[in-house]
Design a binder for these strands. Structure first.
Lengths: 335, 335
DNA sequence: GTGAAAGCGCTAACAC
DNA sequence: GTGTTAGCGCTTTCAC
């Protein structure tokens, strides 16, 4: 079995003390250039690498951060993770990924797990099911650095980064209106999510700004966020069972968009209407029927979140002022 | 700042020695039931959790494993990670995800990183660019447990799990033949990948078995595996510039399938032909033009790989016999 | 049945 | 400029 070289090994081989070796390796100024060179050369020769576990124990820093997402097999989140990873990699951090699968229970347990794993901080996107934030608040109050991204919690004072969902929804809705559609239905995500409210508000505001009265029957929430095809189908069917039927659809998430398309395909006679859906899938352009879409800057969001978290972790002084950064989304009109 | 409780804290509070507390927590039989109960109760009360870093240092085990994939933002890999995570979670392991982005250079560096991070083992799917396996072989010969999944390396003796690519490709090709198509072109992945050869062989074998002569002009490799749209477009255009044009397409990967659809859309006059592509996207059924697809059991593959790795890590005796498990794929005919 | 001491690999006072 | 020592939190001989 493999046995890694240690500082002691080097010290013994070179007839030096471990501390001298340690200092030489860290390029301390109190060590002679001579000695440094000898140590460095020998270290390279025997392929020495400092043991991060020992370092962690000493420094009470693990150089790893936890990332909590609903599901990695979701384009938006995997792209975010890509962004997180790009910063982490460059700054010497590991990321430990944990999935809530949008379950409160798993979120609570996994967050606890992460904390016990002595991560230096946590990047967090809330599960769709979560309404009680006590588990997060406790961790936060104990001093665990936390940065929220995408699905944020307003009540907890820390850094946050998310899409400017209000604006994105406003623009998407207004675009439909400008194109001449007036009966725009909105398929919304789980009601407790921050992004759900923000997008709904943007949608309402666009209607209002254009003199269209908001009709509650034209909004349906999907508690399972598109994981449950039946739920989405019911919502879609609801819209088209109304006396005044929608002439366009604004859909609040990727999963919902996809599930809606499937639901629409089942309806007879076939319905064709313009759709704008949030989507970060890499095949949105190939879907049929074609949909227009709101694309979030997922990679950038991951980058920003990780940079914020590192700032939080590495800050010498407690931080009092917290930024909530909003990223613009891109609206793609495809008709 | 947060300060976690330690065994010493408990010992001091209860006027016991650290060793007694340690034993009590681990439910050692040499400790009196009385004492155990007191310790356990107090530990719960102050929310004690054993420090995994200290444990790692002591045991030379980190309970974390590295996972090397080309890209998490790829349905197949994210589903695999899901499977890996499900086992890891249950067995108390963390997974540290690393992406090669199909670059040999990054693969080599990141693998080194993982090793230095003292992971207990590595789950590995090769980058498309890699032709030199020295970095893996070195690690392997030093005793690092490695399990290959999906894109495997035949030459390294260890556990492997992958799709039965030969069979999947054979069945897909034969299905096209049975449906009456004879001029079946094959768009292949990077030539150095194990899966590329296996799928190509299956394709050839199906032709042979059905009395069709293999035409090399009907196979094109894409070194960038679909990351480079131009490359795919060239390949597709090549097929349709031939005197005898293909009447069906068999495509070896998800990315390639998508890129081909885009390329086909550009061709004038429009070409409609049946396509079977490998795809683990969750929207394959909504693509236009509609394609038939080979779906790999990505989640199961992740599970199997992680189980194998844990077996390897936790095995008392050196393992001599290594299994290469083949998973069946599902063929979906969609016309 | 419980305690004392050593050690995992590393670093940082504190010597000299 | 270099060595000695102690300690991060935990387990594990070895005593008693």
């Amino acid at each position: 079995m493999f046995k890694a070289a240690t500082i002691k090994d080097i010290a013994r081989a070179l007839s030096l003390s471990p501390s001298t070796v340690s200092r030489a390796l860290r390029d301390s100024h109190e060590i002679g250039e001579q000695t440094k060179k000898i140590v460095l050369d020998y270290a390279r020769q025997i392929n020495y690498h400092t043991n991060p576990i020992a370092l962690s124990l000493k420094n009470k820093r693990s150089y790893s951060v936890g990332v909590m997402v609903a599901d990695v097999a979701n384009s938006f989140f995997s792209q975010t993770i890509n962004g997180i990873e790009s910063v982490a990699y460059q700054k010497g951090y590991n990321i430990i990924i944990s999935q809530s699968h949008d379950s409160y229970e798993r979120e609570r347990i996994n967050i606890e797990h992460l904390a016990n794993r002595s991560v230096d901080g946590i990047l967090m996107s809330m599960s769709a099911q979560t309404t009680d934030y006590a588990h997060i608040e406790q961790l936060h109050s104990q001093g665990m650095p936390i940065v929220f991204f995408d699905r944020i919690v307003d009540a907890i004072p820390t850094f946050k980064v998310t899409t400017d969902n209000f604006k994105a929804a406003f623009d998407a809705t207004e675009l439909l209106i400008k194109k001449g559609f007036k009966q725009i239905a909105h398929l919304a995500n789980a009601p407790q999510l921050s992004i759900t409210t923000e997008r709904l508000d943007g949608y309402k505001a666009a209607l209002l700004a254009n003199g269209i009265i908001y009709n509650p029957e034209f909004t349906r929430f999907c508690a399972a966020g598109g994981r449950d095809a039946d739920e989405v189908e019911h919502a879609v069917n609801h819209f088209f069972a109304l006396n005044t039927k929608p002439d366009a659809l604004f859909i609040a998430s990727d999963r919902l968009s996809v599930a809606s398309l499937r639901a629409l395909r089942k309806i007879e006679p076939a319905i064709a209407l313009p759709i704008i859906g949030f989507s970060n899938s890499d095949v949105t352009d190939l879907l049929s029927p074609q949909i227009s879409f709101v694309r979030q800057k997922a990679f950038d969001m991951g980058k920003a979140a990780m940079e914020m978290l590192i700032a939080l972790i590495e800050s010498k002084h407690p931080i009092e002022e917290f930024e909530t950064r909003l990223l613009d989304a891109e609206l793609h009109w495809e008709y």
